[in-house]
């Protein structure tokens, strides 16, 4: 029994170690920030921005060379005191709106934002109508459904 507990505990330790190393490898290089606020913004930005090369990874996940360079540049710009918007504009000027996982609510990507609103409104309208009809209709016995249509 004691052995079983020991084995179980060592397994847990090995798994924890694996999780810890995965996290270290994922980052690639480690930057020093002059404040935790900058570090938080760095983490936010690299999650929100897309790697131009790998196309379905954000900058914080990607191990490609270009993502290394872009992370280095973002770190530098944050330390220079640039705003999130300035950093995004810098990247969009070079790699296009492609690098933004959140497309701008203007121009050709406007419909991406409008269509869900349209469907939400249309759906609520349908639900409202169905509920209204159900309320007005007297309860009917089974077999009489045809009268409804």
């Amino acid at each position: 029994m004691n052995n079983l507990v020991k084995n179980f505990l060592s397994l847990v330790l090995v798994l924890l170690a694996l999780i810890a190393t995965a996290k270290v490898f994922a980052i690639g290089e480690i930057y020093d920030f002059s404040s935790t606020e900058l570090l938080e913004r760095y983490e936010e930005l690299t999650k929100e921005l897309r790697c131009p090369k790998c196309q379905n990874q954000n900058l914080s996940d990607s191990v490609s060379e270009i993502s290394d360079d872009l992370r280095r540049e973002i770190h530098l710009m944050l330390e220079q005191g640039q705003t999130d918007q300035q950093i995004k504009d810098f990247l969009v000027a070079r790699y296009g709106t492609f690098v933004l996982y959140n497309p701008p609510a203007a121009g050709s990507t406007l419909w991406v934002w409008l269509v869900p609103v349209f469907f939400a409104l249309a759906g609520s309208f349908l639900v409202w109508r169905v509920l209204l009809q159900a309320k007005q209709r007297p309860i009917i016995a089974e077999g009489d459904e045809e009268d409804l249509l």
Binding site: E65, I66, D69, R94
Partner: peptide, 13 residues
Amino acid sequence: RDGRLGLNLGVYG
């Protein structure tokens, strides 16, 4: 060498 000009050119490979 460090890819800075490449970055300004939007190079990704």
